[in-house]
Design a protein around this nucleic acid. Sequence first.
DNA 1: GGTTTTACTTTAGACACTAAATTAAATTCC
DNA 2: GGAATTTAATTTAGTGTCTAAAGTAAAACC
Lengths: 403, 403
Amino acid sequence: MTLPLNDITRRDNTLALLRSLRTHGPTARVDLGAMNGISSATVTSITADLLKQELIVELPHDAHRNGGRGRPKTLIELNRDAACVICVKLSINEVQIVVGDFSGHIRHSAHFTLTTQSLTPAQLSDFLETRISEVHATMKASWQRVAGICLAVQGVVSPVNGTIIWSPALGFRNASFADHLADVFNCPVLLENDANCIARILAEQPEYSSYPNLVVIMLGYGIGMSVLIDGKPFLGSQGSAAEFGHSKYEPGGALCACGRRGCIEAYTSDYALYREARSMLALPAGDSAHPSHDQMQTLTQLALQGDPVARQIYDKAGRALGFGIANVLALFNPDLVLITGSGVRGYDAMRPSLERALREALVDELIGASQLATCPWERDMTCLGGIAMTLQAIEPDLLVTPP
Amino acid sequence: MTLPLNDITRRDNTLALLRSLRTHGPTARVDLGAMNGISSATVTSITADLLKQELIVELPHDAHRNGGRGRPKTLIELNRDAACVICVKLSINEVQIVVGDFSGHIRHSAHFTLTTQSLTPAQLSDFLETRISEVHATMKASWQRVAGICLAVQGVVSPVNGTIIWSPALGFRNASFADHLADVFNCPVLLENDANCIARILAEQPEYSSYPNLVVIMLGYGIGMSVLIDGKPFLGSQGSAAEFGHSKYEPGGALCACGRRGCIEAYTSDYALYREARSMLALPAGDSAHPSHDQMQTLTQLALQGDPVARQIYDKAGRALGFGIANVLALFNPDLVLITGSGVRGYDAMRPSLERALREALVDELIGASQLATCPWERDMTCLGGIAMTLQAIEPDLLVTPP
DNA sequence: GGTTTTACTTTAGACACTAAATTAAATTCC
DNA sequence: GGAATTTAATTTAGTGTCTAAAGTAAAACC
């Protein structure tokens, strides 16, 4: 037994209202009630509590004119300054630190370039602590509280244990930073996979919110995937589910960054594409194991313009991705598969062979059950998702003890 | 808005008590309270309602002596005769019809042999209606009510739409029987995949109940799989998730019963094993496309006794299964993968190559996160699972309107 | 300026739950 | 054998949450 049952009901309803406000923006009490199946009287009661706690604010009436007859609605919105969260995105050779306010918007953002793969755990820990401290101090000076921190990491992480199991950005394995940071900054620290963050943000966008079972595949330096079941990210027993990039296309096939062979990533990721291409084509110089945006752009353009060698490389990549997606359709049967990440730039070049592979692999009924779409890629999506997840995680903590 | 909120709480608590009684057998009020985090007073109140509705009964005190001091516990158990459900298992060339009582036990069972693949939809519908009618009439004569019917079907089904999308037992596709049967017998009719039924039963057995994320793989004529996430069967958007047997091992590989190539089933199922074997080994005569138990037994024994040709066949099957399981581990990251079905008889012959494939495919961290085990196979498991699922589904209906 | 419309608040009552007190039914102790 | 002890179940009293309905507020309409 944790809480008396009635308190749970109240808390659930309170959290539901906060979530409605976060996704819908300013909303009137009547509408909040209708959206959540709660009577108007109860909304009044709950919002009164929240106003007292300064988690929400009423909008002045003159800010909005809502036409019709009758008493005008009083719009309520989240108090942006009620709390803030920090999201740290860790990817290959880049760290991004972002501050989000209580309504989920980015208030501050900074990028750092460093050779992540050569860091020791202690060096990375120091780096994170220093950088977060700077932001943390700034925020504390101007705001009430930093209510949570999120580490959004490329690779296999265990949110439950707070350990990074394996990341392409790092030269070591099984490292734990979350607990230490939680001690230092005295707030909850979430560890999340970057693909889950992105899926979280995409899923709440109106055009995708009607698909409760959503698979998001991220193409880029590596291949990431996130599965949302009933709108919630699916984590396996250790929280490290959905390692799509390392599911197998061809047993014994091409060498992957994970050390195994035949992974989809070993055919479809940036580094795999560039590895195939560099020996056969004239391409910009640079670190071919970590091709830059420009390098990939050049390669993609060649394929899209019909260069036969480049086309063949993308054909092969599309075929691997197609068979991989076929397995995902067979196993998860989602409503929608959304392909995004910086690698979508090459999607059109992969598409014919991808679709051929799908038809080759699956009976029509299974293909037809799921839609396939792409979605443009924006750099800040990961952090926005991390902020959203962190806010949701810390909200119950903010509700404690109205005095 | 459906029900006032407090009614939902009450209904949830009532259903929780019923579920406790179903899994734990006769239980005292105090213990029911402790198990469900409900106060003893509330248990008294709820059980009073249930007694009035005759869904539960009190055991006479002299039936059990529970030693200790103090007032003896009054054990409560489900009223077995409160309702019954019918489960129809449809597999290749066999239909089984079973009656389960309210406590989930089998009260009656009948098997029918018929060439299912040559039936038209109308013929099958007639057959089912006739056979169910017989049982239904018998039950109605002696009991209160037949509260639900379950169709447990091998293959891809859509529980939501009530249609059989594809079944190896049938010569046609996209057939709907559930609605018609529901009309005829005036009760809810569930359509379930057979693997989901079995997983349901296994999951509630004490030795597996501590694994919330459980994957059950069924080896047999075909390959079935069920995924339980947080103890609940995972169905995709159409409810036809987890078509593990038709996920791909080898693009362009062996021909599968589904018409595509390279499916795991095309290497590891009974028919695939026998297809490979029949040209090279002296095996019992019979329909080699649908090998009998005896035929498979002979083949398995050969492999286990070290016959090189048979061993090679099982090696290949194990390798395909191993890569398939590797993908499942990568994508679902379950706590436990349980292998069962009649085909477990050959598991030991597949095991070495299966484990080799796993190690070849996955980084150690992902293999180590999940356990792998086998579980003996019993014929009635499917129907027991179907009964359990049906009882759970109809329970809310039984609670309506205390007069 | 009165009427109508819509939004929000207050009031009154119902329901489910729990803690504490009470009753029930056994065992143990003397 | 009767009193004390122990444990189970029930009853009682009280709390919290919710809703429907009545009441109040603030606008547009006529």
